[in-house]
Nucleic acid binder design. Structure first.
Length: 215
DNA sequence: TTGGCGATTGGCT
DNA sequence: GCCAATCGCCAAT
């Protein structure tokens, strides 16, 4: 992406007490599992007409090249083409006809792989996040990939977006002490369910899954 | 052209 | 804990 090292816009100064800085593509690992680990603690920002939604990612899953559970495993198709974009692009798909899931493409241009964003905690726009999920307890609003995408107002229109370029949806970083990152098998899979490619911040209450997979 | 199925969630037993 | 909801993709007919 273009470096955004200049002054923050007035809008960003007003809305960014957490000092979110855009992540450059060069800062992102271009290896799927390295990126999956790297993204725990990173920030996802969606600037919408209603205001800024910003969350700190606390749980991810890697779906690397050669993984039978990866949507790109069987090659390029109409649905999964965003997985083949250079690392740092959004891949958004509909699951069970109900929920969207947000991923980050994770390898070189033309290589299909990605990182699923499974859970996050609010950084900015908590009221807006809540408004996107009426009736859902705050503690659960970003817990789980379908919930995360819904609260962040991420849908099909976000598919293919460059998360390392200026625009409404982007990846950033904030100053925060390094998290202790745990790993486990991935959740909800029917294939390749034994690979330890889920990464999460240990003890964080926003992490999804059964209790034994959160400690 | 069709039908099986999925990286989930929420409601009900 | 079990299961329905609900859509689009894609492999197979």
């Amino acid at each position: 992406m273009t470096q955004l090292t200049g002054e923050l816009t007035a809008e960003q100064q007003d809305a960014a007490p957490a000092q979110i800085r855009p992540l450059t593509r060069a800062a992102l690992p271009s290896d799927t599992l390295e990126l999956a680990r790297f993204l725990v603690g990173a920030v996802l920002v969606h600037d919408t007409p209603a205001g800024r939604l910003a969350v700190r990612i606390v749980e991810t899953e890697g779906y690397p090249v050669g993984d039978p559970a990866c949507h790109a495993y069987r090659g390029l198709t109409a649905r999964n083409r965003s997985l083949f974009l250079e690392h740092g692009h959004a891949y958004v798909y509909l699951i069970y006809g109900v929920w969207y899931c947000a991923n980050v493409s994770s390898e070189a241009d033309g290589v299909g792989a990605g990182v699923l964003l499974r859970a996050a905690e609010p950084v900015e726009g908590a009221a807006l996040l809540a408004r996107n999920r009426p009736g859902v307890p705050t503690a659960d609003i970003l817990r789980g990939p379908g919930r995360l995408a819904a609260a962040m107002a991420i849908d099909r229109r976000c598919d293919g977006v460059d998360l390392c370029a200026p625009g409404p949806l982007w990846l950033g970083s904030i100053d925060r002490p390094p998290a202790v990152i745990g790993s486990s098998t991935r959740i909800g899979l029917t294939r390749a369910a034994d690979r330890p490619w889920r990464f999460y911040e240990r003890g964080n209450s926003f992490v999804s899954g059964p209790r034994r997979l959160r400690v």
